[in-house]
Design a protein around this nucleic acid. Structure first.
Lengths: 213, 213
DNA sequence: CCAAAAGTGTTCCCTCTACACCCATGC
DNA sequence: GCATGGGTGTAGAGGGAACACTTTTGG
């Protein structure tokens, strides 16, 4: 389950199936594990094949294996989610034989999904919601330099609710993991916002303590 | 990974292997998924075969599948944890051919474990720690009627730290999910404690809200 | 009467929440 | 000059943490 954020909307990568069962349906991308790779490696490889990207934040979140989830017999799916920034227009190649095309779809406009993929999506989103409160995964969705409003936007989209601007800023800055870049946004037709960068060093020190973003 | 609480110590069920590889080593119990059962069903069945018990709280927590975790080729293990109360002396039958015997072992005295089972244990315990703070899983380890001290004990053993008695009681009672049974502990050589029961109805109402035990 | 655990309140501090207005910029 | 989002402070309430003594019971 691959999430992308383009600065405005939260999207997920879906493929259109080219094979029975569920031919022409939309589905979450996935593939088989190869003989000599770990599960994490496999997930990274599959992501790379789809997007061309490497070094992306991923996390295994649940394994689905009901005997009747695939009409042709048991398929065990080990689900991962990945978070990445959509820089402008990443071309997505429709790869493998079983997919016609791949598309970024707004998570608010999900079509009907093949198999039990709706359930897999729901469970993943729930896990991400939980995690974003305690770990700095939001930064994985943002470019290196970002504004506080963009950061808040990510939180609001994932949590599915509005947050108070002043409280959000106060809290975020209080963790001391954001570095003010003394630099402003450009090309906007209103007051330019300050750009920040996530400081991994400082976060590492903080780590271990339970924090609540 | 099967946790049991006997009123005093937190224990885990280990088997002594009777087969290579890792013959005579201790290991977490496990078995193969059958053709027509779901993963959850499979976990329940395996638990039942080991302990004779049914209707036990279980939860899938992670899937391990490194190609070299088993010397004879890739084995994918879908790990679950189970929580149950040890009533006195449940006889544990050494079952299946690959185990000589099964024993309840204090989690503080874990022996060296076969394969990557130490890692599987660590990850599971970590998940339980996280979960016990937000969901009432501690009750699964206790008998129906229990004292607040016993409940606190479970929390302390799982979290691995001492808690303040007054604060703990205040908080627990404030959730309103414990019913005072107007009944006292018996057979103790000191002041008898009040017995409580977990009230699932009230918990169900509370559910959905994030709570922090 | 001694040992062992049960039971009980208050204070302080910190964090969360709610809330509204002026500022800078581009067009 | 207007529209758009950027940026800022404070007061009140609630929750978490620290802390010690009296009570009950069995032996």
């Amino acid at each position: 389950m691959i999430f992308g954020f383009d600065g405005g909307e939260l999207k997920i990568l879906l493929i259109e199936r080219n094979e029975e069962p569920f031919k022409d349906w939309w589905a979450l991308p996935g593939n088989l594990v190869r003989a000599n790779e770990s599960l994490d490696q496999s997930a990274s490889r599959i992501l790379n094949e789809l997007t061309g990207l490497g070094d992306i934040y991923m996390e295994q979140y649940y394994t689905f294996g009901d005997p009747d989830r695939h009409p042709q017999g048991r398929v065990v799916s080990i689900a991962y989610y990945a978070l990445l920034r959509l820089g402008g227009d990443k071309a997505l190649k429709p790869i493998s034989t079983y997919a016609k095309q791949a598309h970024w779809v707004n998570v608010k406009d999900l079509p009907k999904l093949a198999f039990d993929h709706q359930q897999i999506f729901d469970k993943g989103l729930e896990k991400i919601k939980r995690r974003i409160k305690h770990q700095p995964i939001a930064f994985e969705l943002l470019p290196e330099k970002f504004t506080l409003t963009q950061l808040q936007n990510v939180y609001e989209l994932i949590l599915g609710k509005k947050l108070d601007k002043r409280n959000f800023r106060k809290k975020m800055l209080s963790f001391g993991v954001l570095r003010d870049l003394d630099e402003k946004q450009k090309g906007v037709s209103f007051r330019a916002a300050t750009l920040y960068r996530f400081d991994k060093r400082k976060y590492a020190k903080l780590f271990g303590k339970e924090i609540s973003f």
